[in-house]
Amino acid sequence: MTISTGVTHRLKNFELKRNQMLKIENLHATVGDTEILKGLSLEINAGEIHAIMGPNGAGKSTLAYALGGRPGYEATEGSASFDGQDLLDMDPHERAAAGIFLGFQYPVEIPGVSNLQFLRESLNAQRAVRGEEALNGAEFIKLAKEKAALLKMDMDMLKRAVNVGFSGGEKKRNEMVQMGILDPKLAILDETDSGLDIDALRTVGSGINAIMRKPDKAVLLITHYQRLLDEVKPDFVHVLAAGRIVKTGGPELAMQLEEEGYEAIAEAA
């Protein structure tokens, strides 16, 4: 079959566009009066898993919060779009409904509110924004049971108040159950691996793969450790230092970081 190069090019372009999920260009963000993100650019396509690594205080959590729309994390310059929508223009709950999920580095306690109540209200709020029907109690419980099993989480934990009295590891696992139930398009997981023992790390890793490794989904993993990346193999690894992506590579970059440390890489960049 012959086909003119012009057409092939256009087709390719079209395909790329269709798959693009998150596009961040020259993003500057301040917390208080301090600029933390200083011209960060990043593109994530559907079906991809990206890892961001970088020293403490580099701005990794700030990036996650800025993408989630946390008040006080102000984008002062640049742009961020999600599925073609201007992300910076949306309220936090609208971003959630659009399909962005944040796995918190420090999950928050909400006394008196059970995980089940919290998630059912959250899911149905998202569905309402998307014009979908609310799940009834039975449908929701079925879904919750399925996702809890995936993460080896006891249903009794889901009946307890959100993160109250949970150990560090339980909190992280709970974040992944929430991710499973809310079924986002893009999961930004902020140090989900820290505080997990080896077995929990495996469970969480396989949970992430089961829930998110799909052609129409993408993951941004923020981590310090190779261990998680052994479980959830990234397509791209980025080094974030001083508010910018200073280096991008494949899985081998993570290995190199593990051996040489951030400083050497950041300086060489």
Partner: peptide, 9 residues
């Protein structure tokens, strides 16, 4: 923010 990030206004 936690609650809003999960979808609640």
């Amino acid at each position: 923010f936690y609650a809003q990030q999960r979808g609640l206004d």
